[in-house]
Design a protein around this nucleic acid. Sequence first.
DNA 1: ATGTAGGCATACTACTGAGTATGATGTTTT
DNA 2: AAAACATCATACTCAGTAGTATGCCTACAT
Lengths: 218, 218
Amino acid sequence: MASTERQQNNRKVENQQEIIHAAAICFMRHGLEKTTIDDIARELNATKGRVYHYFRSKNDIFFAIHRQAMRFCFDAVQPILKQNIPADEALMRMATAHGHVMMDTLPYQRSIRLGVDIYLRGSTTEAEREVLMELIALRNEYEGLYRAVMRQGQSEGTLSVPDEALAGRALMGALNGLVDWYRVRPDQTQAERSRIAQTLASTIINGLRPKPTPAARS
Amino acid sequence: MASTERQQNNRKVENQQEIIHAAAICFMRHGLEKTTIDDIARELNATKGRVYHYFRSKNDIFFAIHRQAMRFCFDAVQPILKQNIPADEALMRMATAHGHVMMDTLPYQRSIRLGVDIYLRGSTTEAEREVLMELIALRNEYEGLYRAVMRQGQSEGTLSVPDEALAGRALMGALNGLVDWYRVRPDQTQAERSRIAQTLASTIINGLRPKPTPAARS
DNA sequence: ATGTAGGCATACTACTGAGTATGATGTTTT
DNA sequence: AAAACATCATACTCAGTAGTATGCCTACAT
């Protein structure tokens, strides 16, 4: 029956997600190479058999994590793009949202740091290279969203961005750096997270605002 | 003879540095785990025997790279601290210098990204944990230099830094992000590098300057 | 010239960990 | 109910790699 088939599919996807999540946690803790499939299985209270039933290889798991991580980012930022607000405000909201995503989906985001470039050189099969290129393209597209808003702010006059590529790198660097030092603490309130995200975002974006008295210099 | 002994010591240190450098290049390309000792030896046009003659283990090599990377950073920044200049200017020079170090010593800096935390959990022996703690302390000390200058700027009035810990993270994140995307190109001029370092540094630090008209708001 | 020690290559060992083969158990289909 | 299938556990294989054992060779000391 069709509904049964769909239920089975749901179940399958859920199990895959569960494995991905466990893997992300392991990768966050010990890095990609040092975590074994057995580690992931242990995190699931299961054995290798279960993992290999849903994924062909460790690389496939990493790719799935990466895709998921990018989806988290897009989902957080895209609604803001549809709002009709000044570019500086949009950029501020996007950056804040990105910071939140970094903290909320820490295992995923941390797992993929530096992973792509390293994997790219090492991966043997043609299929893997293709997937990697696709993931890199996704990331470029994502960063492109920020650069587009910066360009818009430049033409609007709400932002002053002489080099939007570099400004984008700076913004991403400051926010992505979260995965290096941020640690989830159970007693931490949502307000505290918001403060972190907003402070990081505004620190960069304040540096991109037009000088209030440009004619007064020298 | 003493002079001979010193020469031998020099030679030994040089050989160690050569191995460290080759290892850093390999680590940059393929990551820590994926590079084998044989890879490092091949980069040296040598064999494992040479590597193990100077280092007890792969971890020891990583530790040496890390120490060297931190030394590069300290050496670039400490002279600036001795100059008698306003804190905002000092911070700007320090950040720019840090950016230069990231580009100039890319293999070292890239090798140690995320490496420490991952190694910390995994390392078994007590001695290794001690070395790692020492390296983490070094890094904290280094970042402390920036925070100290920020505090000074705050009291001087040349900077406005409500949360110097977060501001420090933002600054380090934006600059350290260089190792993720910067690639050495032979045709690239020194001027181009300077532009990158200065743009990144000023983007952050401009966001930390006091508002010119704080009384005029709303 | 000859002993001696550092500098390294070669040839191992021992182990880890990715991926596979197989089968046991439950669940859905007919 | 029994056939077919999905979901896993168990028990392997085998390749790759960190680290070691050994010995040659060269340079320096005496």
